[in-house]
Design a protein around this nucleic acid. Structure first.
Lengths: 254, 254
DNA sequence: TAGTGGTCTAGACCACAGA
DNA sequence: CTGTGGTCTAGACCACTAT
């Protein structure tokens, strides 16, 4: 028994596990562990019970427990060392940036996102769009330009291009909902997004829209998102007011 | 048999698998699949053989194959749908940003990173540092400030704070190696990093060092990195020339 | 030596998509 | 209906760390 911080037995209050239900067991276990960590029930540095014992005590198989723990490791909440054990990472627990849209990020953090559609038109894909969206040059696509505000303050300019299947998207819908919400409503599920984050000076037009001085710095993000069939469904060029928005990323070694 | 792109049987050239060796089987399989995808041997949209068949053909168990495939899904190279199969994602394959340092990023991309140490001194942790590094306020820490260039062009200003254990780090070492290389040489392995990426105007001093106009935009990143025991080992505030550097991030829905 | 996570096997049943 | 991935089990052996 190493003299590390301390060994902890997470309480027997895993006993509301729903074995027959639709929610995977590993997910239920991971959720309860995550809650305990965010609660500080398991404080930073605390050692977890070992996998085999935990599995036995919960009446689950080791792979199931292992999967639950691994999910938390991938979220940057736990760290494992062979021969030592599993410990809670020090440092503030930050919620991971999932595959969400700005709209949902804002809603979740209690702000009121508002959208004004600057332009929406069907165009043909130029070189740049064709490459980003993975369609033929000259294909019909929908170009949307929006100004996103939160609590009345302009936050970002969102330029998006969508493939032919979505050219009938409606201006009114876009003013009321996030783009990802609308796509989900059409049965599209985002699976993968590849993003590039950078910075540059705002153009005069951008500065005006974002209520910034001329040539002020803006944070930029360009993204291509793919659905669960691996096809690109969205290509976007966004620019954000850097005093109001930044990106949080957690990297984990695998 | 759905009429999707096409079913593909990855060639029998998995037959150099080293079963007794130290390299995990799932890793060997994943590597070969990854190579096939980057080769375009498995082109965008191609369907993979199903898990069970692939496992049987390679003489491996299904969980092993599954793990290999899941690793590629997590890298954003593959997409899976229940009842359908596994397909290669469309769009350019980008190498993932691992838990690496700028120094290694540059080296890997064939550039010559150079470092000049602007200052290196032992100080006591103020409020900000104490929080970022997870140490007591007033603890002795090492503050390092470096200018990183590539191929002779200034690229970034790197401000880092390290805990007491590293106060003896040497200026000469820092000019020759990346910080992460030096830490690894001391037996420290980075496991988790939490980063925040933003933008702002350069200070006068930064603009001078980076050879930028006054108040030009810079890309900023602040990061806390944790080792495999979950303890913070590095807290950094970096700023980059945005015309020479940007961050690439791949998000995957789990 | 004892305890830990890392890997691997050989099955099983289920949920979902398509023809 | 068949075929696919998603989940789960109950073991096994190994590699690494500490004492």
């Amino acid at each position: 028994m190493p003299q590390l911080p301390e060994q902890r037995l997470p309480v027997e209050l895993f006993l509301d596990l729903d074995r027959g239900g639709p929610v995977p067991l590993y997910y239920q276990v991971a959720s309860r562990l995550e809650r305990a960590i965010r609660d500080q029930t398991l404080p930073a540095g605390a050692r977890l019970e070992n996998e085999v014992a935990l599995a036995a005590r919960l009446g689950l198989s080791r792979p199931t427990i292992r999967r639950a723990i691994q999910d938390l490791v991938d979220q940057g909440l736990l760290v494992r060392r062979r021969g030592i054990g599993t410990q809670v990472v020090h440092g503030k627990v930050t919620r991971n940036v999932e595959l969400t849209s700005l709209f949902e990020d804002l809603e979740r953090s209690g702000q009121k996102p508002e959208t004004s559609v600057l332009s929406i038109e069907q165009v043909v894909a130029d070189e740049h769009v064709a490459e980003g969206l993975g369609v033929e040059r000259g294909s019909p696509v929908l170009h949307i330009s929006r100004l996103r505000s939160a609590d009345g303050v302009p936050l970002a300019i969102l330029d998006n291009v969508l493939p032919e299947a979505f050219v009938d998207l409606d201006r009114a819908d876009l003013e009321r909902h996030g783009l990802y919400q609308l796509l989900r409503a059409r049965g599209v599920t985002m699976r993968v997004a590849k993003q590039r984050i950078g910075a540059r000076a705002a153009t005069t037009k951008e500065a005006g829209l974002l209520d910034l001085p001329r040539s002020a710095p803006v944070l930029t993000m360009s993204r291509t998102a793919f659905d669960n069939s691996g096809v690109a469904v969205e290509f976007g060029q966004h620019c954000y007011r850097p005093d109001r928005y930044s990106f949080e990323v957690t990297l984990v070694d695998r």
